[in-house]
Nucleic acid binder design. Structure first.
Lengths: 233, 233
DNA sequence: AGAAATATTATGTACGTACATATTATCTTT
DNA sequence: AAAGATAATATGTACGTACATAATATTTCT
C-alpha cells in the first residue's frame, strides 16, 4: 500500500487488518501512530482514528493514550449475538409463528427470582408460562416473572394474544440486562410441554432486565431440541 | 435538555437513549434529523452523527439515508459475547489452568468436516482431541480438525505444551468465522472424558474459521456440566 | 537517590465545511 | 396512468484544526 489516493476508513480498516492477518504486525506489536499511518495511507488522521477505533472495539487492537496502539496479544473474539423477539426469529426462518399462554398467576416470587431481580419476597408479581411454536411444533417454552410494581400496565395486556416477551419489548423501557446461556436436561414437565423425552438436552437462555436499579422481569427460555444459536465473527 | 452548553457524543447518546426509554420517542417513531438535534443539544452535527451511529449499531435505532432515523420497531438486542482463549477464560475465573493432549492423528477428514470447511475428502488434515482443565477438573473437551495445507507450520508446534486453540490464535491468520451454540446429551465417550454421566446435558460451541475462502480449522468444544456463558446487554 | 512538579506525547473528541450516496419526492414523457 | 428522468434531502464520510486527557518521560527540588 503506497502513499497514493487511499481514502475511506473502511479501506484503512481492511489494510490494517490485512497487516495483522499476514503477521506483518504480530500480536503485541506496537503499530505506527495515527499521524504516521495517515501519511502512509494518504488520508486524514480522523479517518485513521475511526478505522483503528473500530478495530479496537472488534478486539483486534489495544489502544492507550500516549502509550500508542498495539495488536491485541490475545485476540478476544467478540461475537455479536442478535437476540430478536421470538416471533421474528421464527418468521425469519420462514416458519409460521404461533403462541399459546399456558398459565398465569399473580403472586409473590420464589427465592431465586428475588435473588435475580433484587426484589423482596413480598413483591407483587405476575408469573406467566407460555409456549412459542414454529410451524405448529413447540419451539420455545417461556417461564417468566414480571414485576407489577415496575410495570403495572402489563395487567391490562391481553397475554392470550401477544406474548409477554413481545409486550415487554414494546412497552417496558429498560436500561440493562443480563443473559446466560447454558444446557440443561429436560425435566418431566418440560419434556411434556416441548413434546420430547425427559432428560433430553435443551438450550437454555436466562434473561433478567432492569430499568436503572429496578428489576423488571426475569425469564427462563427453554428451546426445543436441535436449537442452535448462530453468530459470525 | 435545553439548548445550553451540551457537548460530547456520549451525552447525546445518553439523552437520546433516555428519550427512547421514557417513551418520549416510541418504537417506530421518526426522530428529529441530525441537524435539528444538533441545534437542540447545542453541538455539531458530527457529534450527533457519532451518537446516533453508535445507537444504531447497538440496535436501538434504524437509520436510512434520506428516510431519516427511527426508533427500532423491534429492538434487536445485540449481546456481545467475548470469546477468549480458553486458558484466559479459566484464569479469569481465578482457577488454575491445565491442558492435556488426548489424541493426534494426520488423516483425511470425515464428510461433516469437509462440509464445514469446504474442503475435499482427500485433504491432508490434522485431527486433535484435547482436554482443558480448571483446578484439575475437566472443563472443556476439544475435538479439532486443522487444514495442513492452510497452516503447514502447525506440524512443528508442540501440541503437548500449547493447546491447538491457543497456537492457532497466535499463528494462524483468519478473516472470518462461524460459531454455533447448542446443547447436546453427552455420549458415553464424552461423558467419560468429562467425568460425568452419559446423557448429561452439555453446552456445545462449534467454531469454524476461514482465511478468505480457505478453511483453516473446525472445532467442537464441549463444556463440562454447569457451564454458563454470560453476556450483558 | 527519591519524590514531586513539569513537559511531552499519542490518543480522544469536537467543530465546520465539503462532498458522496442512497432514497424519496416530483416532474416529465409516453 | 405508468414509466422514466430529475430534483430534493437526510445520512455517510472525509478533512484540517483545535483542544482535552491520560500516560509517560524529564526535570527540579529536597
Amino acid at each position: 500500500m503506497n502513499s497514493l489516493e487511499q481514502q475511506s476508513w473502511q479501506s484503512v480498516h481492511d489494510e490494517v487488518l490485512r497487516r495483522i492477518h499476514t503477521r506483518e504486525w504480530k500480536p503485541g506489536d506496537l503499530i505506527p501512530k495515527e499521524v504516521e499511518l495517515a501519511e502512509q495511507l494518504g488520508c486524514a488522521r480522523a479517518t485513521v482514528n475511526r478505522a483503528l477505533r473500530e478495530l479496537a472495539s472488534e478486539g483486534f487492537l489495544d489502544r492507550r493514550r500516549k502509550a500508542g496502539t498495539r495488536v491485541a496479544a490475545h485476540p478476544v473474539r467478540r461475537a455479536k449475538l442478535d437476540i430478536p423477539v421470538i416471533r421474528l426469529e421464527i418468521e425469519g426462518r420462514g416458519q409460521k409463528y404461533a403462541y399459546g399462554l399456558l398459565f398465569s398467576e399473580r403472586r409473590t416470587p420464589p427465592p431465586e427470582i428475588c435473588a435475580n431481580l433484587g426484589v423482596t419476597a413480598e413483591s407483587d408479581m405476575l408469573h406467566i408460562t407460555s409456549l412459542h411454536l414454529a410451524d405448529g411444533k413447540p419451539f420455545m417454552f417461556e417461564d417468566r416473572w414480571v414485576s407489577i410494581a415496575a410495570t403495572p400496565t402489563i395487567l391490562d395486556a391481553d397475554l392470550e394474544k401477544i406474548s409477554a416477551n413481545e409486550w415487554l419489548v414494546l412497552h417496558a423501557p429498560y436500561t440493562r440486562g443480563d443473559i446466560y446461556f447454558s444446557a440443561v436436561n429436560a425435566s418431566a414437565a418440560e419434556a411434556k410441554v416441548l413434546r420430547t423425552d425427559p432428560g433430553t438436552s435443551l438450550f437454555l437462555m436466562e434473561r433478567t432486565t432492569w430499568e436503572n436499579q429496578t428489576g423488571i422481569t426475569s425469564a427462563r427460555l427453554l428451546f426445543a431440541p436441535g436449537y442452535r444459536k448462530h453468530s459470525a465473527i
